[in-house]
Nucleic acid binder design. Structure first.
Lengths: 270, 270
DNA sequence: TGTTTTGTTGCGATAGTCGCATCTAAATTT
DNA sequence: AAATTTAGATGCGACTATCGCAACAAAACA
């Protein structure tokens, strides 16, 4: 809208854009990286700018350059930093539980966290049955994931409505009914410890989800398993209770003592 | 040396320093992050600078701020980017093999890669026996790790000597003998597929290491297991051959076809 | 409530970056 | 192998975002 809004931290933004391009959409076979010109064109920036930025990023280890093809890809430093993330601990703790679930049901198992209004998948453990899509780092709106239900359980109804109001197309009957459905799902998590939702990204797949709490009793993640939409109700119930049990165990592994959960009235932190 | 050498990409450097501080030494209980002033003091920079930089980084998701304590920590974006790294694939492929090893020997199992003159540990799978130190993302000089031997197997002797000359204190007898020991270790990897080294960081522990190759036959990583130094020779030999076998399997999982390995004369890529 | 510490913001001077053109080095073609 | 094309690096002036000081606001502390 504006002619030239002064851009603070333009350098960082540029660098992040570059990293994002290098990250690719993932499922491509862009494994051997990208060249300077290609990136420059994709970002609609000067080659020189990209060239210099990439050199700086390489110096910091954020990207690395293939010695032969001279193409750039994401660097080891990202890995090292990510390993120090809060999330890393979560992943380490979660991994065995997720594997157990994947084995028990032979379905994909996921660990998700809430980030703003989106659900980010931190790890996914594949089942044996089908090709496994890489979900790590992928972020979807809360409304679109079963995990969203688990992650918002502690929110006050009012805040949930606000969020849904912003996320769902307003004024539609479907939106209203969706909101009611949502609140019902939350109640189900509270009473049963899990929720089944068919509002997943992939059409043929529904999700079962259960919240995980840390030592303070705050919800820090959700564990989920996918399930074919046609699954029998009793199977869903069985999976749900089992999942809730695993979530409880994982919470304990994070230091939650029994009775500390269900911290009431924890509002939206933003 | 110079009065004021113009600093290109000063912003990036600052950001990286901040991220590095937030990464902490890891094993501390700095889990709840750091405040602006603390970081500024630690980096000997202006508070204002750090404050603004952190806000920008937060906007990009590289750091996040605890809503209550107002302290910063590393953000989810790092996780998302790291998941798209070359290394991430490696880790995914390696995980089951490492678990197998950790289970079979009840020793810690590691996956390492070469980065410049250092060995970076990407994953470590703990044994059941002792407290497990967090190694992920930790980098040590090639000379200090058993994995170093595996990772340099394809280098020409001349290049290895160069590296050792730079890394080891020069002119000492010990250095010369170390170099010879090194080359002998490399030969051992070539003939037996593994190497045992007692020049580990931790004094009480030695390491067994074996190289992993990708579809092109290039060495991309090393898998290792720790072992108490007092282990019997036949146990070491058994572990070594087993490790070499697992390394071969993992290489195959990365697309290496039999006969493609041992690409001769692959020099130092820098 | 008063005081100290921690974090944010306004503003001029400084210094790094942008983008164009130029130049070098690979990759391709003939 | 020489010529052509494409990819990537670099020098340089104009521009503009950042630095750092200091004042301000907001927590935390007492």
């Amino acid at each position: 809208m504006s002619e030239k809004p002064p851009a603070p931290s333009a350098g960082l933004r540029r660098d992040m854009e570059i990293l994002e391009v290098l990250a690719g959409h993932g499922d491509d076979r862009d494994a051997d990286g990208f060249g300077v010109s290609w990136i420059a064109q994709r970002l609609d920036r000067e080659k020189s700018q990209v060239s210099r930025a990439l050199r700086a990023l390489e110096l910091e280890g954020m990207v690395e350059r293939d010695a032969l093809t001279r193409r750039y890809r994401l660097g080891w430093r990202l890995f090292a930093l990510a390993a120090r993330t809060q999330h890393a601990r979560l992943v380490n703790v979660a991994a065995p539980f997720l594997r157990g679930l994947a084995l028990a049901f032979d379905e994909d198992a996921y660990l998700c966290v809430l980030r703003g209004t989106h659900v980010v998948t931190l790890v996914s453990v594949p089942s044996s049955r089908a090709y496994h899509r890489v979900w790590e780092g992928v972020s979807v709106p809360v409304t679109m994931a079963a995990a969203g239900r688990s992650l918002l359980v502690d929110w006050q109804e009012e805040h949930v409505r606000q969020l849904l109001g912003a996320a769902l197309p307003s004024g539609l009957d479907s939106a209203v009914s969706s909101a009611e459905k949502w609140l019902a799902d939350l109640a189900h998590v509270r009473s049963e410890g899990y929720v089944v939702s068919d509002v997943e990204l992939d059409d043929s797949v529904a999700g079962v989800s259960s919240p995980v709490r840390d030592h303070r009793g705050l919800i820090v993640a959700a564990i989920n398993v996918s399930v074919t939409r046609a699954a029998a109700p009793e199977r869903l119930r069985e999976m749900g209770t089992r999942l809730a049990g695993v979530a409880r165990d994982m919470s304990a592994a994070l230091g939650l003592r029994p009775g500390m959960d269900r911290v009431g009235g924890v509002g939206r932190p933003d």
